[in-house]
Each structure stands twice: as C-alpha cells, then as structure tokens.
Design a protein around this nucleic acid. Sequence first.
DNA 1: TTACATACCGAATCTTTTTTCGGTTATTGT
DNA 2: ACAATAACCGAAAAAAGATTCGGTATGTAA
Lengths: 122, 122
Amino acid sequence: MYAKKIEEDLDCGIRVAFKIFGGKWKLCIIDAINKGITRPIDIQKEIRIASQRVIEMQLAELLSYGVVEKCSEDVYPKKSEYELTEMGKTILPVLKQIDNWGTANSAFVKLRQYELERAGED
Amino acid sequence: MYAKKIEEDLDCGIRVAFKIFGGKWKLCIIDAINKGITRPIDIQKEIRIASQRVIEMQLAELLSYGVVEKCSEDVYPKKSEYELTEMGKTILPVLKQIDNWGTANSAFVKLRQYELERAGED
DNA sequence: TTACATACCGAATCTTTTTTCGGTTATTGT
DNA sequence: ACAATAACCGAAAAAAGATTCGGTATGTAA
C-alpha cells in the first residue's frame, strides 16, 4: 500500500465508515460475497466494469480490516474463497440502506445530471 | 468542475448514493446543516480540519444536485445560509446509520490500523 | 508435458479529488 | 473612510485512488 500524507480523523464515525467501505468497489464486493459469489474471478465477472486488479486490491484491504476472510485456508492459493466475517455482516444493513437510497433517487439524479450537462454546454 | 473521463454507472444504487454524498466532507456538511449550522463560515469552523475552499466546493455540489438550497436569496451573497431540501432530508437516516456503524466500529478499526502499521514497520 | 485458468503482485500511469494560495466583491462595525 | 469579516472563485499543486500492463506461481485438465 501507500503511506498517507494527511492525517485521518478516526474519531468521526462517518470517516471510520468511509475508510472501511468507502472505496469505489468495496460495497459492490461485499454485496457480491453476500450473494454467494465468493471467488475473486467470479466477483470480477459479476461487477464486470471493474478490473481484476481493483477487485484484488480492494479485497486485500477488506481482508486486512477484517471485513472478509479467506475460508479455503489451503497452503497455497488455488481456489480462494472469501466470506464475510461477523463484523463484515454488520455492514449489510448499512449497505442495503445506501443502495435503497440510491435506487430511489436514481432518476432524480440522472435528470439533474442531464440538466447540469446541458447548462454547461453554452 | 472537471470533465469525467470514465463513464459512471448510475444504474447502481450504491454508485448513485456515493455520487451525491460520497465526497470526503459531504456527510459532515449535511450533518452540520441539520444541526442548525447554516452558514459556510460556521460550517468550516465546525469541521475545522477542512479548509474553507473545500466547504465551498462541496456545498456548491450539494446545491447543484438539490441536496441543499440557499435560503437567504439576497441579490448578493452576504449572509448566505444553506438548508436541507426535502430530498436532502432523506439522506439523514442513511447518514445516521453510517455514523452509527463507524462509531460502533471505531475502536476495532483503530486497533486494526495500529496492528497493520506495526506489521509494516519491519 | 503442454495449455490454460486462477490468484496474486509491483510499478507506472492516469483520473479524480482535495488542498493550498492568492485573489475579488460586498457587508458590517468603528 | 477604514479595517475586519464573509462569500466566493480560478488555478496550480498535491494527494489519493483507480487502472493498465506485464509479470510469477500454482493447480487442473487434456
């Protein structure tokens, strides 16, 4: 990984949460694993527009913070499968609410988006 | 603003939500406004570690997507005050849940953080 | 043994986001 | 009139985060 230059404030709940699942694909990965898609390659196929490398990296971070764990603890990685830890499962209700909000507001946001683009073309 | 190079997928609820309130300070700003801190300068003082410029910019984005609105519509900005729109208020329950999760897991994350730093120092 | 799929990783590059800096304009208080 | 405060903006720079590319290693199956 890389070293952060700017100190982060982990006394703020919002910042803690974003640190753990704020990455671009993290919630998508958590969602996939929750749906039973446990292997990196399958997660990548599910999300599609994310590259394999991103999945690997975000998975590694989720692993390092104990959100997911490797369940096939073979000596060497062959059929790695990831699953949510108990802590990881506590994210699910939050994920659901975020997803619901986004889905409910999707049309509105798309419209706004379109209007802003139109306005910027002058 | 800047032009995005990578197309974004607004058919995914998670992505829509993150587009609207995924910025580093957006939820903090929404929270502040909800607490009755309505003026940019006061929001900045509340958050402190965020610069004035960031507050302005994120506020401008929240405004452009209809999350907040300017309520003192004077001819020229003097005592600008922002408040949440109806749409903006629908974010509050999500914000609360995210904040709660972060607060509940703060100690755990800090510990993990510390362990990871220790491990990386060899 | 050969070919292929899977799991990873390092490093360079590119994109996005945040920060810093130095302004302008207008208002308020003295 | 003058100083101080507030709102806001443009542009450059820095930082963070994501993507691409090209690799290694291992297991599986023909």
